[in-house]
Simulated assay, not measured.
Amino acid sequence: MTNRAAAALKSRAFPNLKSEVYLYGMHTGVTGKGWLCQRHLHHMMVEVNLVLSGTQTAIMDHAVYEQQAGDLLIIPPMKPHRYKSDRQEPLQYFVMHVQVSDTAFMQLMNNCEQLHYPKGDPLNEKLRPIIMQLIEQLQEDDSHSHIGLFANALLMMSLLERHMKTQQSDSPHYSEETLPPLIAREIEKLITFRHSDSEDRFETREPLHNWLAQIAEKLLISRRHCYRVFQQAYRMSPRDYLAVLRQQEAMHSLVNSDDSLEQIAYRIGFENVQSFIRQFSKWTGMTPGSFRRSERDSLHYLTPLELKLEQ
């Protein structure tokens, strides 16, 4: 052992550390021409999307990516996105969502500028073998231990973190107690608090009015400042975020529950079911009933609010 190494081993107390990792919605899919994945986002989760064969089109804000076989997409938290496939050949893909209870990492990912890593890109060449090993581990269906699975997921996040730090050395850093994540949580509560209410009281629940002003008042800031810091951090307005959450929760409830349209409309803040039906038709081009019949059990990409880790 060198003198330098020996010196580094002098008595020193290190902090106790705890971290949680949540892997959600891991699946492979095979689709044909005309496949469409509706616009959605993931609450404080990183999406890893790898095309195994064929081609898919990813749309994020005004950016469009043609994802070929072997191409990788890394989608930050709170980033609205959608997919489609217009090609004749089948599309096969793997997708997973990762949340870690490391706020610094999640906020680092929020500032991610590069999303598309084509085959041959240095980061792609590092991550793709790990993802392929993850797929093999998932297919083995080993119910005794998931340590190897989580080890690979954390290795992937570690490589991502190292890459993002080199790319974003001058980017602003947000600590755990800064306003943007607090505002996001308060917006999410506008929907999640309704899940715990008695369903037979949904007719009497007040609709969503002046909600941003109420959030700002709760956080002891002005409404204007509340809007500005959220927009700056997540590149979307608080109202846009709430709209995506309402659409996403509606789609998730329609295909994963037998709740009535009235119950779903109430939970996401509509005053009546007619308003909900009109808005849902604008979102998806389908009525809620048609969507429920055609998409039942097929929407694996949505992240339910009630399943996300506590921050």
Rank of each mutant, 00 (worst) to 15 (best):
A216Y: 04
A216S: 11
A216F: 06
A216C: 09
E217H: 12
E217Q: 15
K218V: 03
K218Y: 11
L219Y: 01
L219P: 01
L219E: 05
L219T: 02
L220A: 12
I221T: 11
S222L: 09
R223H: 14
R223A: 13
R224N: 13
H225C: 04
H225M: 10
C226G: 02
C226D: 06
V229A: 09
F230V: 05
Q231H: 13
A233F: 03
A233H: 11
Y234S: 11
Y234M: 07
Y234C: 09
R235W: 05
R235A: 13
R235K: 14
M236A: 08
P238F: 02
P238W: 02
R239G: 12
R239I: 05
R239Y: 11
D240Q: 15
D240T: 10
D240W: 01
Y241K: 08
Y241R: 08
Y241I: 00
Y241V: 06
L242W: 00
V244A: 07
V244G: 00
L245Q: 11
L245G: 06
L245H: 07
R246K: 15
R246C: 07
Q247N: 12
Q247P: 02
Q247H: 12
E249D: 00
E249W: 02
E249P: 01
A250K: 03
A250S: 15
S253W: 05
L254M: 07
L254W: 04
N256H: 15
N256S: 14
D258Q: 14
D259S: 13
D259A: 14
D259F: 13
S260V: 11
S260K: 10
L261D: 13
L261T: 02
L261C: 05
E262D: 12
E262L: 04
E262R: 04
Q263L: 15
Q263Y: 07
I264Y: 04
I264H: 00
I264K: 00
A265S: 15
A265H: 04
A265W: 08
A265C: 08
A265F: 07
Y266S: 13
R267C: 10
R267L: 04
I268K: 07
I268T: 07
G269C: 05
F270D: 04
F270P: 01
N272Q: 11
N272S: 10
N272C: 11
V273T: 15
V273D: 09
Q274W: 05
S275I: 04
F276H: 07
F276T: 06
I277S: 13
R278A: 14
R278E: 13
R278S: 13
Q279N: 08
Q279K: 14
Q279P: 03
F280S: 02
F280G: 00
F280L: 08
F280P: 03
F280W: 06
S281K: 15
S281R: 15
K282H: 12
K282N: 10
K282S: 10
W283R: 05
T284D: 03
T284N: 10
G285D: 02
G285C: 08
